[in-house]
């Protein structure tokens, strides 16, 4: 049985070269539903994905950020790191509030989706952005920020992370923001979280996951430039694999033009380390080196 990935086709011709970060943003943009509300993590890939979607696919989708900006028409590009509480980021919004505005609106059930990026995710969709390792190897990270509220309160949470073994772990070193917790039925409700909420998809630069009925990550689609074996080799645990894997299409010229010339012309987000992919008109390949 083929799983409905909920992905619309991209507009425009398939792009001949792009990097995996760009591909990940385009995939999430194609998932965005028109007429729905999105609480997006401030800055980085989630915000670019929703901005792309609004421009190309879902003009009626709205987003808020944790400083209480509701449905802005931001003046792009953002100055470095100025993606919240900045005049350009909040430009032409429908309303301005504060952090408790965002938290309360999500707690009321007004946020259909949350989109987050993270350091580490586990088989139950739990999110770590607090710390990794122990002793001398211990590294301290910044904490959940707004992600805990997004993951707890939005109806569906889409997570963006890298397809790397150290990021796809059996159990996160620290649950900063909740997925399905220990994976048992009703675990979120027992912890006081609203029912009917929780993890929905994980999107990496080369794969997509949903969750089984028993709340475990399930690989459902891969990019055409990787094999399932390659993806699974970059998971610390073995996720459930769908009987029939879908294929994620590469970015289109329209998507990349928008991303590179308007959304992130300085490459602040997309120029970070990630593999380059070449499309020769028939097949996709990771570029050497």
């Amino acid at each position: 049985m083929t799983i409905d990935l909920g992905l619309r086709p991209g507009t425009g011709a398939r792009a001949a070269s792009f990097n995996e970060r760009e591909a990940q943003i385009c995939t999430v943009a194609r998932m965005v539903e028109d007429g729905k509300t999105y609480w997006v993590a401030g800055g980085g890939s989630p915000m670019y994905a929703v901005l792309m979607a609004i421009r190309l696919y879902a003009p009626g989708a709205q987003y808020i950020t944790e400083d209480g900006v509701i449905a802005p028409e931001p003046m792009l590009p953002f100055e470095p790191v100025m993606t919240m509480v900045s005049s350009r980021a909040g430009y032409r919004a429908l309303a301005w509030g504060t952090m408790n505005t965002a938290g309360n609106h999500a707690q009321l059930g007004l946020m259909d989706y949350g989109i987050l990026n993270t350091l580490q995710v586990d088989q139950y969709g739990n999110i770590n952005s607090t710390r990794t390792g122990k002793g001398e190897a211990a590294r301290r990270f910044g904490g959940p920020g707004g992600a805990d509220s997004i993951a707890a309160l939005c109806w569906r949470t889409v997570l963006m992370t890298d397809q790397e073994k150290r990021k796809f772990v059996e159990r996160v070193d620290f649950i900063s923001s909740p997925g399905f917790l220990d994976g048992s039925e009703g675990a979120r409700e027992r912890a006081g979280l609203p029912s009917g909420t929780g993890p929905f998809r994980v999107v990496t630069p080369c794969a997509m996951y949903d969750y089984t009925e028993s709340r475990r990550l399930r690989l459902v689609a891969i990019a055409p430039w990787v094999t399932a074996e390659q993806v699974l080799a970059e998971c610390e645990f073995t996720p459930v694999v769908a009987d029939q894997l879908g294929t994620l299409d590469g970015p289109t010229e329209d998507e990349l033009n928008l991303l590179r010339t308007e959304l992130d012309p300085r490459g602040q987000n997309t120029a970070e380390r990630s593999a380059w992919i070449i499309y020769d008109g028939e097949k996709y390949e990771r570029a050497a080196g």
Binding site: G103, Q107, T130, G143, P144, D148, S149, A151, A152, L153, F174, I175, S176, S177, P178, L181, A187, R188, R190, A191, G192, L193, P194
Partner: peptide
């Protein structure tokens, strides 16, 4: 209605 269940 958030924060429960986390290690935080």
């Amino acid at each position: 209605r958030s924060f429960g269940g986390t290690d935080g």
